[in-house]
Simulated scan of single mutants.
Amino acid sequence: MKLNLQDIPRVRGISKEEFQEKYFIPQKPVVFEDLSADWPATQKWNFDYFRKKVGDVVVPLYNGEPAKAGEKSHAPSAEMKFGKYVDILQKGPTDLRMFFFNLLQNSPDLVDDFRYPENLGVKFFKRLPVLFVGGQGAKVVMHYDMDLANNFHFNFVGEKRILLFPPEETKYLYKVPYSIVSMEIIDMDNPDFNKYPALKKAKGFEVKLKHGEALYIPSKWWHFIKYETASLSLTLRSLPKSPGKILEVLNNLIIMRNYDAVMRKWKGQKWIDYKNEQAIKNTHNSAKLNKDEQ
């Protein structure tokens, strides 16, 4: 059995009116096949180019291992120069990933290689254009973004598989309490439906994003990413404006994240085990699974 997934719509030459009406306002994902066609980045950005531009910048790297008891939930597993990391990527499969590499802080001239697609009628947060890089086979746990941004994810190197689930499917996704992630032990690329039967009820979307393509990920949509090959992508963000979402963002950043950090430090593995147990219990209750299905 496989996850219940459908293809994400694809568009070319879309107008502001059509994007707003069909995708942005109703909060639906879409793949842009030509949104960055005339950007210098589409022609220039590859691993050798970044080795030359920022090869000496030391970057934090993350692997696929869940954080251990007492560790911060987002602590890097290694640090090295970007150039050395590129060497590793080009040698073959690796689960090492780099995320939220801020171009403005590390190489401001790279900003000249792209343009904000303001013709879509979207106001972007221009202080945070960020790169995401990963090796072949690397995976990103199912999650939604803590700042509830609308994300425009442009892929320039390689290919990645992305799964998306809307917020209303949260009840089937084994959300971990006091976090914005699903259970890290679940491999959404090959889920175990015997252990996690609620996933059979989840309805989502998938896409294989290739060079030059961009994916619109609406606010609070869950996403899982698998790097089919070594890949480099740029995300441009549009922050939420509604009072309700702004309050939720503040709660996520100030209260929830700090509370979880304190409990991890105080309770260690017991806190992690408790949250995972609650994730299963809450999901099975919300999904209304009977005892035979659990």
Rank of each mutant, 00 (worst) to 15 (best):
A287N: 11
Y178D: 14
L234R: 00
L96K: 06
L104M: 06
L215Y: 11
G121S: 10
Q136E: 15
K68D: 08
D273W: 11
K200I: 07
F193I: 08
R237D: 02
R97F: 00
S182W: 14
E21G: 10
P166R: 07
I180L: 07
S286E: 15
D95A: 01
P93L: 06
L253V: 13
K195G: 14
M80T: 03
F114Q: 08
Y144F: 15
K267D: 07
K123V: 15
H153K: 02
A67I: 00
D147H: 12
L3T: 00
W45T: 00
R12G: 01
V58W: 03
L250Q: 10
D109N: 09
L128N: 13
A287P: 06
Y227A: 11
F132K: 01
G70N: 06
F205K: 12
N190G: 03
E159N: 06
K281G: 06
N155D: 04
R12S: 10
D56K: 12
N252C: 03
E293W: 11
D34N: 13
K226E: 14
K175F: 09
A37G: 10
M256N: 12
K270E: 15
P76T: 14
V11H: 00
V30T: 09
L110H: 03
E118V: 13
E33G: 02
L148Q: 10
P108C: 09
A138R: 00
V130I: 15
Y144G: 03
K175T: 08
H284S: 06
E228W: 03
G92T: 03
V58I: 12
